[in-house]
């Protein structure tokens, strides 16, 4: 988030008036293993989407679209619940040169 504000610049009572500001917060850098998704094996069952604790699975109208690495913490639940082994967990070190 931007620069820290002064006492008279924030709403009273510690109330957060803008919903969902946590979306600005990157949790992807917690990841040590990266889920890699293979579209060819996917049956769009939505198990990974349903169970992802970090809401990092991207889907549209129940069609799997990929993984949001800005948020994905790499827990591997998606790979574990996938009935077709369409998601593989690979060490983040393999991707260290890549930009997200």
């Amino acid at each position: 988030m931007a620069e820290l504000k002064k006492w008279n610049e924030v709403p009273i009572g510690g109330i957060i008036t803008e919903p969902g500001t946590a979306r600005k917060y990157k949790t992807g850098d917690w990841r040590v293993k990266r889920p890699v998704y293979d579209r060819s094996k996917c049956i769009d069952c939505m198990m990974c989407w349903f169970y992802c604790p970090d809401l990092a699975i991207i889907q549209e109208n129940s069609v799997m679209k990929g993984i949001n690495y800005f948020y994905c913490k790499g827990c591997g639940i998606c790979a574990n619940v996938c009935p077709r082994n369409a998601i593989e967990m690979r060490p983040e070190t393999e991707f260290s040169h890549e930009e997200e």
Binding site: K5, W7, V10, I12, G14, P19
Partner: peptide, 14 residues
């Protein structure tokens, strides 16, 4: 959101 965790960066301001 009422009652967030308000740490050393804002508690004092509040």
């Amino acid at each position: 959101t009422y009652g967030p965790l308000d740490l050393y960066d804002y508690y004092f301001e509040h």
